[in-house]
Design a protein around this nucleic acid. Sequence first.
DNA 1: ACCTGAACACCGTTCAAGT
DNA 2: ACCTGAACACCGTTCAAGT
Lengths: 234, 234
Amino acid sequence: MSGTTRRRPTHRKGRATLTRESVGEAALAYLGEHGAAALTMRSLAAELGVSARALYNYVDDRRDLVAVAAGIFQAGWRPPRLDPAPGAWRASLGAFCADLRAHYRRHPGMTTLALSENVTMAGHPVMLRNVDALIGFYAAVGLTPADAYRACMETVRLVVGFVEFEDAPRDRPPAHLDPGDLQAHPPPWLRTDEDDALSHLAAVAELAPDSADTRFAFAVEVFTEGLAARRRSA
Amino acid sequence: MSGTTRRRPTHRKGRATLTRESVGEAALAYLGEHGAAALTMRSLAAELGVSARALYNYVDDRRDLVAVAAGIFQAGWRPPRLDPAPGAWRASLGAFCADLRAHYRRHPGMTTLALSENVTMAGHPVMLRNVDALIGFYAAVGLTPADAYRACMETVRLVVGFVEFEDAPRDRPPAHLDPGDLQAHPPPWLRTDEDDALSHLAAVAELAPDSADTRFAFAVEVFTEGLAARRRSA
DNA sequence: ACCTGAACACCGTTCAAGT
DNA sequence: ACCTGAACACCGTTCAAGT
């Protein structure tokens, strides 16, 4: 036996040795590059220059692979600082939400994949720190501890839901959809010819179209003002 | 040729003849019974006593099948009446959201399936009427037309997002998760031992646990008050 | 017109065998 | 310890042939 600790080899057959983390990182990168549907055990193995069976030495199954990728995804977010001062907290919260939205948009399909594979999108220590900071922010703003926790969960849900339902279809347009329809306002599935029966809908069609950013800002502002009202009435 | 119009046969080989609608209804029922993962072309065909190939005479592909099922799902909702009167609109909106939530919970996995298959969850005439009524409600409450439209979209997103992220995992617990963890508060992935560093999170753990209904009510109330504030400031 | 059964090109996962 | 290649039981989808 040598006196020095035996080091795991960092390379094998001219290829970097795999680890649970490196496999997860590769999955996350592959996801961002080729989309969720293209991420299979076989395709990822091929990308890594290895047989599909080899991946099972590092992850339990496909679900576990997605879970590892989701953890790495979350750890990659550094949130902007939150300022609970009376004149600053609204703008601060808005910037926080916008930044979180941008992070999720960088990896379209990550959330859908996690949902369909029943992976809970959380658990990384870095994310715990972010959640803790957000709860603290809400408490400092004037919410009760219980409401601060609820507001924290609702914040994440608002942002993730918006990305999932609004941004994802536009950022990675499905092949079967006319790209023009995605920009249309109102969306094509809301168009109708029975103007008499659906008068409000017809009126909306006359308005100048909203951008996704405008709709996101609306959602965040309404949420923010709702919290402000809740704080006053407490 | 007979003088009477030829009627399509309603049965074939002792089995009801298939139609695009009946196949979609069967898919929706199968989804509610066995979950989204179990719904395959082959399993649905077997349920209908037919070969997998036969389904392709009525739907283009799996995506189309999900789209038909989604349409039938939406058509099956009769929303409660909305009352925009000053003293009634908040409670009215709350009941509307609670009813919509209950409808989505009746078919867990429908939304996730639609998302992963890139199916836009809308388009049925009945749903158009509901959307129109909701926009009219918000306009009557005092929102501008543009805001009424945004609020309508945000309402649906709030409810569907809540069902997707909160209710679905509990209503159809994934096999790999400890059922007890789903009731836990805070959720297991938020638990930590580094109490010193994550003080706010630790404080939350001391609180009485929230029910999903409580969290949903919080989300709807915050949204409602946010809209009320937006109306006043307009 | 509508069906069946076989087939194709894929999956995730496992087994037996290599080094 | 970690890999490969073949195999198994599935998918969605299509083809050729039946009635």
